[in-house]
């Protein structure tokens, strides 16, 4: 959270590591790689808390779920 992943923050999935984990995100112009487990249990929950941004959250849940290198 302190790295700027907040409800409503635009998060781009830049890539997925060749072995499937971790995933690389682009947050506020900075690179940030986190493990899938953390992505699901920390950030996404935070997204869901703010109902107005649920759509953004769903989008990333799908992206995190398996698609490789979605831009």
């Amino acid at each position: 959270m302190e790295l700027g992943v907040l409800p409503g923050t635009r998060v781009e999935v830049v890539g997925v590591a060749p072995l499937g984990d971790p995933i690389e995100l682009l947050v506020r112009g900075s690179s940030l790689s986190i493990r899938r487990a953390d992505a699901e249990c920390v950030e996404v929950v935070r997204f869901l808390e703010n109902e107005l941004r649920v759509e953004a959250a769903r989008e990333s849940v799908e992206e995190l779920a398996g698609v490789r290198g979605v831009r």
């Binding site: 971790p22 690179s31 986190i34 920390v42």
Partner: peptide
């Protein structure tokens, strides 16, 4: 602690 990697 969640892994945090930065790819500079």
């Amino acid at each position: 602690i969640p892994l945090l990697l930065e790819l500079p």
